[in-house]
Design a protein around this nucleic acid. Sequence first.
DNA 1: TTGTAATTGAGAATCAATCTCAATAGAGGA
DNA 2: TCCTCTATTGAGATTGATTCTCAATTACAA
Lengths: 152, 152
Amino acid sequence: MEDKIFREFLEKKGLKFTKERAAVLKEVFSNHNHFDPDDLYVKMKGQGMKVSKASVYRTLPLLLECGLVEQVERFDKHAHYEHTFGHGHHDHLICIKCGKVIPLFSEKLEKLQESLCKQEKFRCLTHILEIKGYCSKCEEKGQGGKQKRPGV
Amino acid sequence: MEDKIFREFLEKKGLKFTKERAAVLKEVFSNHNHFDPDDLYVKMKGQGMKVSKASVYRTLPLLLECGLVEQVERFDKHAHYEHTFGHGHHDHLICIKCGKVIPLFSEKLEKLQESLCKQEKFRCLTHILEIKGYCSKCEEKGQGGKQKRPGV
DNA sequence: TTGTAATTGAGAATCAATCTCAATAGAGGA
DNA sequence: TCCTCTATTGAGATTGATTCTCAATTACAA
């Protein structure tokens, strides 16, 4: 199914559905975890697939553009992605103590954002919302001591 | 005023209020624009101030931590910041055509986020919301042609 | 003033992401 | 099927923001 979406997107742009692009797509959809480009590359290599790092880096923006993946967790140094087909857009709560990422979706929140954009005559395409704080477990334990990642 | 906040924050952490840190703070608050660490460094150098790039990069996370600056626009390759004291937290609408950044604040939106966090028993400290799309001007003109920054 | 731990600066190091360019492979037409 | 025209690929070099290193310096308390 993702295949079809990607294929049509590429065709519309006059680009080709190559085996490398297909392989990246397949890997991205092979599970529901977040990933970063390098992880993905290493995993593909580990499975004996034939791709270069450059191809991975070149394919991900295409998947972004056609909405099959979204970027998350941009507070970190490098890009993180997750695929969206099959579970749709959602936001994230990120615990700055243990690093846990909790997905969050609220119809009300989405609607409110839309209406705010409308007020500004802004045509919204995508958005990213990341809320940083302490998850219930870390909050219980207290958050004494130095943080591992100051500034986050 | 920012001075006092920063000073007390440093003291609480057992850190020193040095002239380099003071200089970075002053420069950050010298106007209301967004900036990136390197810009800031160059500007300070241009004014004959005595700081190293390393100090700038070391000071910004401290300012982040005490809430005097926030990160914005993390879709780009490098970090962007803005100071928050004096105008408080707000979100951003970012035009993917012309790059314009429109600040947005909605009490309702903030409240809704808080209540969602409460539902998840998550203690929210900060958040970042960036909405990407077309501003009214670019929307008028139509958005034909290839994008300069595909994938954004 | 002295002791001492924090801080600084200059440049090296890191490392994700991008670029280069010759070789290769789709897709449509003959 | 073969041909041609582009788009694409891979390997490695390059870029560039950010972080690290470490000797010299500085702030602060006694």
